[in-house]
Structure formats: structure tokens, C-alpha cells
């Protein structure tokens, strides 16, 4: 277990570092580095924000940290990879279809839509199943019980992938050509970064509207305020919770596919660090608050990239954990959250 995790860390560290070093050569060109790290940070922040939405949604309704959410993210990467491989396998879907997917831009868009949709749906359903079997029996148990159960689910899923899929990192094929869109004096933005950012913002807008405007969204808000009272008003609590456990993991799954594309590989333990960091993002923004999760994701992503660029890539995880601890100590309600009063 141990060496595997540090390999993952090294992978991402190297990616960050090489990006920083390539752009700068030496560190005196700090304005460019700053802007480039900001751009990298915003991309990373978009990924964190997508995952953080899942944490915050589940926490808002269930008041529990879904520790297994990082594995939802990981599963998303794998599901995306398998669907992508299946759809571009000529013996499976036919030569013509693959040519269509790869040849035209419409085909490419359809291919990616299918990859993302299938990752979202499969992982969402996985989330629902996990809720049904691991968390629902514990709804009236002491607070620690669901958390321990969630850790169990997380370990189980990680090792299921390790044993039944692969223990090594699988390369994620770059079907979409990643083109540099903006190149201004050493600062570059590529199409994937823009895609991640746009998708994240779009999904947040949709989710925000869904929760604040629709009938089901109202039911979710009611459930998060007072589960029992909401039940008495005729809301099907189980359905609402299941829905939260579908949407959250689905978003995490999408983030997993993006992560695979961005870093070029998926691995069984890829969820651990992004998971913890996204939880940090959710806490920074104020857990239970959707827009807060988004804000927290970007804040954390940017801070982490700056730390990687200006301090040392080895310490960027320490920065994230230190921020988590500081926020919890000094502003446990988060930036946009309300302070929670302990109920007796």
C-alpha cells in the first residue's frame, strides 16, 4: 500500500514541477510563473470544486463525511477509461463508428459526452448502492459509525480496483487533441484546462438552479434542515438521500475522468489526496454550502499551485493539510458557511 501511494504523489508532483520548471527555467521570471501557476491552480481548483460538491451535498443532507467519495472520483476515472477504450475499439463498435468518433469534431464531442455521461451514471449508481448497504442501516447509530463504515467502503473499493483491475497506473489515452489556446509570453492555457473550467462552472450553475428552483431541490433543502419534519411533510427521505448520493458521486466521477485526461493516467489510489483536499475545499467554503464548495475548490487549487511553484513541490500537500487544520480551528463554519451551534 505504502509505496504505491507515494508513487502517485511523485507522479503528480513531477507533473506540477515539470510544468513550473519548463515555463521558468529559473525562478527570477516570477510574474510569468505567478500567472502560469494561477492558471494551473484554477484548473486544479475546478477539479477540487467538482469533488467538493459531492462532499458538501451529502454532508448537507446526512451530516456525515462520505469518506468513500474519493473512491467515487477514482471509479469515475476507471469507468471513463473503460468506456473510452470500448468506444474506440474497432472490433467492438465497428471501424466506421471509430472513424466517426475520431474523424469529425461532432463525433469527438459525442464520444466525450458518452464517456462523461457513462462515468457519471455508473459512479452515481455506485454511490446509491453504497448508501443503501453501508450507510442506511446506520442512520440512527452514533456519529462515528457511518464514518468508520465509510472508511471501510473506501478501503474496499481501492483494493477491489487494485486486485481486480490493475495495481499499476493505467495510461489514459488522449483522444482529444490538447491544443494551446492562449500563449502569451511564456504563459499558456490549453483547451483541456478551459474545458475543465467551463464544465465545472456549468455543472455548478445547473446544480445550484436544481437545488434552489425545482420541487425536488426544495425537498432536498427541507431534508437538510430537518429530516424528520421533512418526512412528516410527505417528503420521501430515502429518495432524497439516494438522490444526493447519486448526484454527488456522479460529479466526483466526472472529475475523475477529467483528472485522468489531465494527468494522463488513472490509478487505484488516485482518489486519496484529491479526496482529502476536496474535503478541505468543502470545509473552506463552508460545508453544506454549494457555492462555498466551489469557492473553496478554487482557493485551495490556487494556493496549492502557488505553493508548488514558489516553495517546493514536496510541501504542497502539507500546505493543503495545514490550510484544512487552520480553517477548522479558526473558522470552522468556512468562508460562506454559518457557524454551527452544537445541539444538545
Amino acid at each position: 500500500m505504502a509505496p504505491a501511494r507515494s508513487v502517485y504523489q511523485r507522479d503528480t508532483n513531477r507533473a506540477e514541477k515539470s510544468r513550473a520548471v519548463r515555463k521558468t527555467g529559473d525562478r527570477s521570471v516570477s510574474a510569468d510563473v505567478l500567472v502560469q501557476q494561477l492558471i494551473n491552480g484554477i484548473t486544479l481548483g475546478g477539479l477540487y470544486a467538482l469533488i467538493a460538491l459531492g462532499y458538501t451535498l451529502v454532508y448537507g443532507i446526512m451530516l456525515m463525511i462520505n469518506f468513500a467519495h474519493s473512491e467515487m472520483f477514482m471509479s469515475g476515472g476507471y469507468v471513463g477509461l473503460f468506456v473510452l477504450k470500448a468506444l474506440t475499439n474497432e472490433s467492438l463498435v465497428g471501424v466506421g463508428t471509430v472513424a466517426f468518433f475520431k474523424g469529425s469534431s461532432i463525433g469527438l464531442i459525442i464520444l466525450f459526452a458518452m464517456v462523461f455521461l457513462s462515468a457519471a451514471i455508473v459512479v452515481g449508481l455506485l454511490g446509491v448502492v453504497i448508501e443503501r448497504f453501508a450507510y442506511r442501516p446506520l442512520r440512527h447509530a452514533p456519529r462515528l459509525a457511518p464514518l468508520i463504515s465509510a472508511i471501510g467502503v473506501s478501503i474496499f473499493l481501492q483494493n477491489a480496483v487494485l486486485l481486480w483491475v490493475d495495481s499499476k497506473a493505467l495510461p489514459f489515452p488522449s483522444v482529444m487533441p490538447v491544443v494551446t489556446v492562449i500563449d502569451a509570453g511564456g504563459v499558456t492555457v490549453n483547451s483541456l484546462q478551459i474545458l475543465i473550467l467551463v464544465t465545472t462552472l456549468l455543472l455548478l450553475a445547473v446544480l445550484d438552479t436544481f437545488v434552489s428552483k425545482t420541487r425536488i431541490g426544495k425537498a432536498m433543502r427541507a431534508t437538510s434542515q430537518d429530516r424528520e419534519a421533512a418526512g412528516l411533510m410527505g417528503i420521501d427521505i430515502n429518495q432524497v438521500i439516494a438522490l444526493a448520493f447519486f448526484i454527488g458521486p456522479a460529479l466526483g466521477g466526472i472529475a475523475g475522468v477529467f483528472h485522468g485526461m489531465y494527468y494522463g493516467s488513472v490509478k487505484f489510489d488516485m482518489g486519496f489526496l484529491p479526496g482529502i483536499k476536496s474535503f478541505t475545499a468543502a470545509v473552506i467554503g463552508g460545508i453544506g454550502n454549494l457555492r462555498g464548495a466551489m469557492l473553496g475548490g478554487f482557493v485551495l487549487g490556487i494556493l496549492e499551485s502557488l505553493a508548488a511553484g514558489f516553495l517546493s513541490a514536496g510541501y504542497k500537500d502539507v500546505v493543503a493539510f495545514a490550510i484544512l487544520i487552520l480553517v477548522l480551528i479558526f473558522r470552522p463554519g468556512g468562508l460562506l458557511g454559518e457557524s454551527v451551534v452544537e445541539k444538545v
Binding site: F133, I151, G152, V153, F156
Partner: peptide, 15 residues
């Protein structure tokens, strides 16, 4: 497999 089993055991024990 022990990690896999431990994960499962934690879930089952809690329930």
C-alpha cells in the same frame, strides 16, 4: 486480499 476483507469487515461490523 486482507485489506479488501478489512474494508468489508469494518462496514459489516458497524451494521
Amino acid at each position: 486480499y486482507r485489506y479488501l476483507v478489512f474494508g468489508l469487515v469494518m462496514v459489516i461490523m458497524m451494521a
